[in-house]
Design a binder for these strands. Structure first.
Lengths: 328, 328
DNA sequence: CTGTTAGCGCCTTCAA
DNA sequence: TTGAAGGCGCTAACAG
């Protein structure tokens, strides 16, 4: 089924069918009626690939996140979708799984599909995918990272500031034992650590665990901490640079009978939805996740319409949300 | 930038460039080398729309779920992605937000984009989108629903059986007050209720709350229940046909000082990841979510390769997972 | 091994 | 208002 087929059946030319499809120029009502009927009859759906090849916009944008089963990214995507679907765009999500090669491949796929715009949460700020995007002349916007180069659109959080918030909290509470747990090597994490480091008065005595990324790993590291850092004997404060990990950690700590926040206090980062209804509601640094998605959508749409305008740069200011896992 | 440009710069024909792109036929090593270099130089990415129009497969499949910020669907999608990405396919997710019109629009978009296959979690078993899909001759597979018509591929859970499991549990525990909370009008829910109804010995005395769908609504309904059904005075058992709602409910119940499972026991449904690490780990009916995604992927891939074979039909058998929110 | 030639399905002038 | 014709970027015979 192509427009030629339905043109033939309707006794008109392809051009006329095309016109009623795009609802652009005037078409004699009777012809239009008849064409619409035939389309309905065969459940005909025009080939978007051909349409795009011939010049009409795809009305779809791509978004590549780092992880699918991660509330942070899903909330961003959801906020993003809310906006773009209102203006008739579709979204195409895929996940790089924190893998550079996979990320590059997905970005190429998107470029290759000639989507109208792309949102990328890059694995690193020097990603090859960013180069590809620049060469492609498809409007794109980075999230969750501040690009090295100038002139690239992005929306990220002030992670240094977030780290500082956690440090201030630690300083005030001042526990005898302090631990920081970080994840993947990623710019966001580095900055959080930096902010924390520069402002926490007892940084020189802190214990640092690295490369703990997921809920499961947080769960597992708990027993290690319990033994190595005698959690049940010394009052401890832990800063975890990712809510998912913090929640896993807390789950296991509770199972081991360690009280939170009394014996061990935990501060997370991100304020994913889950953190407010997990076992011990999490004290965390909020990024206002939905907003990131919404702003990204608005800005990307704008970039699609006005490719010439200077690239938008947004820095979201984090704030501390005190719940139960750590209190002053 | 098109292959013609590349061809010109390399001093060969378009066809030759096309050949090195698809890595199909033999091309003189020097030419190949040179072409690859030029491609690299310009970060050229072939236009997948044109490629597909000209006949090569898109190597992308679409999946439309009902809700993005819902762990059930995300876990399905994640399991799905794991399989298809291994064989070089990309996935394109979108969410219908439980809305029929939106669902139809998304499905049309996918058909229009000539994806190689489609996974759909329909809002209803008589969806217009299912008709469209049938007319399109794109292989498709339904999840989370059993289609009315024969000859349609699907993978669903035995929800009747799931409801029965909950009933058996209720029968054994036999509390004085019993409540069931259900959500959207959806086939899965109907069957869960039916299975529960037909097997619970005190169904005639049960209190039924309908149309509670989200975490938030579960949270809100808690206070209503507390008052109307004097939760703090009568030992109550609640069956919630959706984990998200159950978790919301429990959160509020705890805030009100009602003990779980002593005073009120709660059984959920789905066994989303979250249910094992929420405040009171949830006793729930498990659907083996990741498997649904994986099986769906395998079957869809098979259907793409062998469109003639009879359509696969899978029914997943649920099982009861007893954690803390309800115990015998 | 390689170039030429047709399309793929649709949109968009340009005339009529 | 409408049709004819050209072209979007690429692949796939076909003939060298």
């Amino acid at each position: 089924m192509t427009i030629s087929d339905i043109a033939e059946e309707a006794g008109v030319s392809k051009a006329t069918v095309s016109r009623v499809l795009s609802d652009s120029l005037k078409v004699k009502p009777e012809s239009k009626e008849k064409i619409l009927q035939i389309i309905e009859k065969y459940s005909f759906v025009p080939n978007n690939l051909a349409q795009s090849l011939a010049g009409s916009p795809r009305k779809t944008v791509g978004i590549v996140i780092a992880e699918l089963a991660n509330f942070f990214f899903i909330e961003v995507a959801d906020g993003f979708d809310q906006i773009i679907s209102q203006v008739g765009y579709s979204m195409q999500i895929s996940s790089s799984k924190w893998n550079k090669e996979k990320e590059l491949q997905l970005v190429q796929q998107l470029i290759s599909s000639r989507v109208d715009g792309i949102i990328l949460a890059p694995v690193s700020d020097g990603s090859k995918s960013i180069e590809m995007l620049q060469a492609s002349d498809i409007p794109f916007l980075l999230i969750n990272i501040i690009p090295k180069e100038k002139g690239i659109a992005y929306i990220a959080c002030d992670n240094y500031q977030g780290g500082k918030l956690a440090a201030d909290f630690f300083n005030r509470r001042n526990r005898p034992s302090n631990i920081i747990i970080t994840g993947f090597k990623h710019q966001t994490i580095d900055q959080r650590v930096q902010g924390f480091k520069n402002n926490f008065s007892k940084w020189d005595k802190i214990i640092h665990y690295e490369n703990i990324n997921t809920y499961e790993q947080g769960y597992e590291i708990a027993s290690v901490l319990a033994v190595r850092n005698t959690l049940s004997e010394i009052e401890t404060a832990i800063f975890v640079t990712n809510d998912n990990v913090a929640i896993g950690l807390i789950t296991k700590l509770l199972e081991m009978g360690i009280s939170i926040p009394e014996q061990v206090s935990v501060i997370g980062y991100d304020d994913i939805k889950l953190s407010s209804f997990c076992r011990v509601p999490l004290t965390t640094i909020s990024q206002n996740i939905k907003d990131i998605g919404r702003i990204a959508a608005l800005e990307l749409l704008e970039m699609i319409q006005n490719p010439e305008k200077p690239k938008p740069e947004h820095i979201i200011i984090p704030k501390m949300i005190v719940r139960e896992s750590a209190v002053i």
